[in-house]
């Protein structure tokens, strides 16, 4: 699936650059974008390592268990097959709470951990489990309650009321999340095979 999208993007770009006469730009971006990727990775490296460290403290001290307990009424519904005390459940809780707080990059380390745990529970297969689909889909929707960076950007460009967009943002996010979860759940039911350890 991703392989097709990826190949399509590259071939389509090549065709466009030929027709638009952008070939010089296009071939430059072969090296530039690789360098961009490393730059992005370096930015991510700091945040990911720092927060992986802090998350380890949270895990060892039982902080993640407290968060998991707080979020469990909600998450239990979304992940009915997961044990409330499992490492997967705790990692998902940390990921979701960091997302709610608007700490996008902070949410990544526990998110990746959650995927590892779900992968293990799924018998290391190469087909996504229901839980993986639900979890990733939640991470593709915006859960952020307070779009701080956005507000600051708006203020920086001279908005008279930087946070006037708050209510529309909430409603729009809620609608998108609902659509994502309903489709994820419906798809799980349609294509799922109830086989699990």
């Amino acid at each position: 699936m991703l392989g097709y999208i990826w190949s399509f993007i590259i071939i389509f770009s090549l065709i466009c650059s030929l027709f638009l006469g952008n070939t010089q730009n296009f071939s430059n971006s072969f090296t530039d974008s690789a360098a961009d990727a490393i730059e992005l990775l370096l930015t991510l490296a700091g945040v990911i390592c720092l927060w992986s460290g802090l998350m380890k403290i949270a895990e060892r001290s039982g902080f993640t268990r407290v968060i998991a307990k707080l979020l469990s009424p909600l998450l239990k519904r979304l992940f009915p097959r997961l044990d409330k005390n499992s490492a997967a459940f705790e990692a998902i809780s940390m990921n979701i709470s960091a997302n709610l707080l608007g700490l996008g990059n902070t949410a990544t380390p526990p998110g990746l951990k959650a995927m590892r745990e779900l992968h293990r529970l799924n018998g290391e297969g190469d087909r996504a489990s229901d839980e993986m689909v639900t979890f990733v889909v939640m991470n593709t929707a915006s859960l952020q309650l307070m779009p701080t960076t956005l507000g600051m950007l708006r203020a920086g460009y001279g908005s008279a009321a930087p946070f006037e967009i708050l209510v529309p943002v909430w409603i729009s996010s809620a609608c998108a999340l609902t659509v994502a979860l309903v489709l994820a759940k419906a798809g799980n039911r349609l294509t799922g095979r109830a086989k699990w350890s």
Partner: peptide
């Protein structure tokens, strides 16, 4: 994991 099922559609 390569078979992501309906993730992308949702």
């Amino acid at each position: 994991v390569r078979r992501i099922r309906h993730t992308a559609i949702a």
